[in-house]
Amino acid sequence: MVTFAVILGWTALAVLFAIALSPSATASAPQAMPFLGGGSAETHAWQRFHFRPYTMSLLFIAFEMEMMFMYPWAVVFVSEGIKALAEMGMFLAILSVGILYGWREGIFRWQ
């Protein structure tokens, strides 16, 4: 019962907050355009561009995930024994594929 009330209460709060923060739909057509110092755009703003640091973020996520699971794993490692070691080995093998891919893409080359 209490759980239910908490969920309902938080949902109501979130809805009220969203309503209070929602932008009023009074923006005119010129205001909906991007500001280009009085100029106008030829093409739509939706476009695909090269996210250049993506290999760096790949490397970051690989090591971050590794650390995230290694902390709880270290707690249970002694009681679980060889099984936990094998599981972590598999996990690290999968992650290292990502690191190898990043290596091929040239993350470790310093420019």
């Binding site: 110092g37 009085g38 106008s40 755009a41 030829e42 093409t43 739509h44 476009q47 561009f49 090269h50």
Partner: peptide
């Protein structure tokens, strides 16, 4: 406004969208 069309990237030749706009005079 048409969607941006692709063209070769001038750095590494990847096919990426080209966005054109007139900027200025203010």
């Amino acid at each position: 406004r048409p969607m941006a069309m692709t063209g070769p990237d001038i750095r590494d030749g990847l096919q990426l969208d080209r966005y054109s706009a007139r900027i200025g005079p203010f």
